[in-house]
């Protein structure tokens, strides 16, 4: 125990800002060749009413073999926030589980949910301090200040924007969004635009496809819907 960092006589109360309070993060020293990747196109749009997130459903090995056709790549991590799985599936899943339990612990202790900025900061710290190298999620959420869309990059970079895309189909999806997004979009319009962006990527990116998942986040909560056919979502 370093007495300068810690007052606990049992030596276990020092909090490292860059790692989870609960458990530790497993390192990823396995067979990197055969790691399942999401490939993926995940889109987040902020509107005045909330945040719309759309993702495809494909998991692949290096973008050349489809290893799963119905992955739900967006998950609730907080009463009014959701995160997408992008990159190594194992890394992204444990990242999401870790953030969900940290957010829950924070809320239980303080009797108020984390702000989305705090959640994004914590996610960035974990990405920076932990071994989740191969992830690039979008965090969408609503708090007292309004709607937020953040990207968290593998080195811990945290950037907020009105709309964002991550994953192997990002250039195609961004092409659809540029010039079409505006902050006054209704939820319906945002759903349509996000769907078209994922659709464009699914047509041309080998790492994206097999349907669509849409998450709608408002101050009431998170709703996630799955679609086999993109046309159903429109």
């Amino acid at each position: 125990m370093n007495p300068d960092m810690n007052l606990d006589p049992t030596g276990d109360d020092a909090i490292d800002p860059y790692s989870p309070e609960l458990g530790s993060i497993a390192t990823e020293n396995g067979d990197k060749e055969n790691v399942t990747k999401t490939g993926t196109t995940t889109v987040g749009l902020a509107t005045e009413e909330g945040v719309v997130i759309a993702t495809d459903r494909r998991a692949s090995l290096g973008g050349r073999f489809v290893s799963n056709k119905n992955v739900v790549k967006v998950d609730q991590i907080h009463p009014t926030a959701a995160m997408t799985l992008v990159g190594s599936v194992g890394g992204a899943q444990s990242f999401i589980r870790t953030l969900r339990s940290e957010a829950s612990l924070y809320e239980t202790r303080r009797d108020e949910p984390m702000s989305i900025n705090a959640l994004a900061t914590l996610a960035g710290n974990f990405a920076r301090g932990g071994p989740f190298f191969a992830i690039h999620p979008i965090l969408g959420g609503v708090d007292e200040e309004g709607s937020h869309v953040y990207t968290i990059d593998p080195a811990g970079g945290v950037m907020e924007d009105d709309y964002a895309v991550t994953g192997s189909g990002m250039q195609l999806a961004y092409g659809t969004l540029e010039g079409e997004y505006n902050p006054e979009l209704s939820t319906e319009e945002a759903r349509e635009l996000a769907t078209r962006a994922v659709q464009a990527a699914s047509e041309r990116d080998t790492g994206s496809g097999n349907g669509l998942v849409i998450a709608e986040i408002t101050d009431e909560g998170v709703e996630i819907e799955e679609f086999d056919d993109l046309a159903e979502a429109l």
């Binding site: 007052l7 606990d8 006589p9 109360d13 202790r109 303080r110 705090a118 900061t121 914590l122 710290n125």
Partner: peptide, 28 residues
């Protein structure tokens, strides 16, 4: 550092009292 927000007075107080409590239940 962890949350990019100021510490609440209540959570800080509870962090302090949790530490004080450790010193009532640890031998030596």
């Amino acid at each position: 550092l962890r949350y990019d927000e100021p510490m609440g007075v209540e959570p800080l107080t509870k962090a302090i009292t949790d530490t004080i409590q450790d010193y009532t239940q640890t031998g030596g």
